[in-house]
Amino acid sequence: MNEPLRSLHRFWPEVVLTVGLLLVVLIDTIRARGRDVANWLLTMATLAAAFVLSVRLGAQSSGLFEGMLALDPIGIFFKLILIGSSLLVVGAFRFDGSRELRGLGQGEFYALMLAVTLSNLLMAAANDLAMLYLSLEMVSITSYVMVAYLKGDRLSNEASLKYILFGAVSTGAMLYGLSLLYGMTGSTSLPEIRQVLASGLTDANRLTVPSTSGAPTCTRARPRPSPPSCPWPPRRPGSRSCCGSSSAAWPWRAREPGIWPGPSTGRTC
C-alpha cells in the first residue's frame, strides 16, 4: 500500500512539472499586468528545478508505481536531454515584437510546454503498454495543439489538421498491433512481454501469414544474401540440407513465413 509513497521519492521532477503546470494555468486566469513575465519566470524555474531534481535522482535502477515506470541511468539521461531542450525553447522564445504572435495568449504556450515536457518524461520511463500509449498520446495531443497555436493562420491550421489525422490513424494502427502483442504474450507489462518472447515462441505461436505449404519437407526460405553457403553450423551427416540444419539450430530464423513463395532458385532439398 506504500508503493506510491515510496515511488514518489524518485518521481519529484514530474511532480514539480505538474505543480508548475497548474500554477501557470492559475496565474493565467488573473488579469494582472505582469502575469506574462511571472509565467515566464515560473516556467523557467520549474524546468530548472526539474532538471536539478533529475540530476539528483541517482544512478540505481528501480521500478516505480508497481512497474508502470522504470527508472534507470539511460532513462535519466533522456530526461535530462528532454528537460534541457524545453529549457532552451522557453528561454529562446520571445513574444515581444513578433507580428505573428501578437494577440496570442502566452500562458497557454507555457502551460503546453510544461505539459509536453511532463509527458516526454513519462514516455522516456514508461514500462507498460498502457503507460506507453498514454504518454505517447499525451505528447501527440499537446503537439497537435501547439501546431495549431497560431490562430487565424491558414498554414498553421492546415498543418495541424494534417498532423492530427495522420497521427491519429497511425497511433490507431499501432494500438491494434499493441493489442495483438497483448494477445500473444498475455501481459501489458514490458518486462513480462520480454520474458515471454525470450523464452522462445514456438513456430505455431508466431504470427503466421498465409503461406505456401507445397514443398514436401524442406521449408522454402527466401534466398538470404548472407551467409551464402551456411558455413556454420557445419553440415551434419544426418541432416538433409544446410537449410534444414540451420532451422534446427536457429529456432528464431527457423522458417520465414513469407507471403512470397520461394522461387525456383531457392534452396533445394
Partner: peptide
C-alpha cells in the same frame, strides 16, 4: 480527448 482537439481544428 483526441476527438475534442480534432474537432476544434476542423
Amino acid at each position: 480527448a483526441e476527438v475534442a482537439v480534432a474537432l476544434a481544428i476542423v
